[in-house]
């Protein structure tokens, strides 16, 4: 009985989830050593998991995405309820009836937080998507479009990075009449430069690779090469950029709303809730800031998890982990 087979037994035991056969394998090992066979040292073994890693990652991805979608949808449905105020219930600490407490006007904070998260997810997703697409297009054009295009885009990128972007964001939001679209487009138009730089560098690298030269020699068109070689190569960078931009966008939305250049005060949004809570913190209404803040953190983490998982699944270098 070879060691290899021992391991195979443990393997099948794992797959079947059968503890009895796992035990049988270790009993065999013990017998062997008793018979005077020298047992091999185990130098390394893959981590033992009941669910394998790839499946687990897929599951995490799916669950996080589902929770995000659920929050966004429930939030939209709750929007009218979140606007209702009931002064008789005002300023209540967290209880069974109002788990997140109520604010000065008697809004239920749980409902208002979920509705606020929904707005924030909307703005965050929209801004991050638009911004990353701008970055993708400009980065690719800079890398593939010749020297002049590259010079223009690099100059624009440097210019954008040179201006403190909160100032720029305020200007755009103000010019577009504030509100949802002002904030979303403001964030979208100010956050592309750093990702654009990364994508430009990445595309340049792929462009100079031997396999692109081979594809050209095999008669493939530039469009084919862009779709089959360049795009998959920049996808991981793009995804990371998108993930990192999402929390950034939400926090900026909160920031400019807090400064009064963002969403109107009656609209439930995390930024509004947090900025309002500031004036009540000093009178001990801690729940106004703590729960919505934690909820925001949770959403950002969920998005991060989904993105990281997707990246792991797409990367062949880590396919066997």
């Amino acid at each position: 009985m070879s060691r290899k087979h021992l391991f195979a037994n443990e393997e099948s035991a794992l797959h079947e989830g059968n503890d009895a056969s796992l035990q049988a394998a270790s009993v065999q090992a013990a017998t062997l050593s008793a018979q005077g066979f020298e047992l091999p040292t185990v130098f390394h073994r893959p981590a033992v998991r009941r669910f394998n890693n790839r499946r687990q990652t897929k599951l995490i991805c799916l669950v996080s995405a589902a929770i995000l979608v659920a929050i966004a949808l429930i939030g939209v449905l709750l929007m009218p309820v979140a606007m209702e105020s009931d002064l008789s219930q005002a300023r209540q600490a967290p209880s069974f009836e109002h788990p997140f407490g109520t604010d000065n006007l008697g809004h239920d904070m749980l409902i208002r937080t979920v509705a606020g998260l929904s707005t924030s997810i909307g703005i965050g997703l929209f801004a991050a998507l638009v911004s990353s697409i701008i970055a993708l297009i400009l980065g690719t054009v800079a890398a593939l479009g010749g020297k002049k295009a590259d010079a223009c885009i690099t100059w624009l990128t440097d210019l954008m990075l040179g201006i403190p972007h909160i100032v720029f964001l305020l200007l755009i939001s103000y010019a577009l009449g504030k509100g949802f679209w002002g904030v979303a487009l403001g964030v979208a138009f100010t956050h592309w430069p750093s990702l654009c730089r990364v994508i430009r560098a990445e595309v340049l690298q792929v462009k100079q690779s031997s396999y692109v030269a081979v594809a050209r020699s095999l008669g493939r068109s530039p469009l084919y090469i862009a779709l089959h070689h360049v795009l998959p190569a920049v996808l991981p960078q793009y995804l990371v950029g998108l993930i990192l931009m999402f929390p950034h966008a939400i926090l900026h939305e909160a920031a400019i709303t807090f400064l009064g250049f963002g969403l109107p005060p009656e609209q439930p949004a995390i930024g509004i809730i947090l900025s309002e809570s500031m004036s009540y913190l000093s009178v001990g209404m801690w729940w106004l800031a703590v729960f919505p803040g934690l909820a925001l953190l949770l959403v950002v983490l969920l998005f991060d998890r989904a993105g990281q998982g997707l990246r792991r699944l797409l990367d062949p270098a880590r396919a066997q982990e």
Binding site: S209, S210, Y211, V214, H228, H229, P232, A233, P316, A317
Partner: peptide, 12 residues
């Protein structure tokens, strides 16, 4: 090419 690993797209 001398180095086949460079002539093949690592993602395909």
């Amino acid at each position: 090419w001398q180095h086949p690993e460079q002539a093949l797209d690592p993602l395909l």
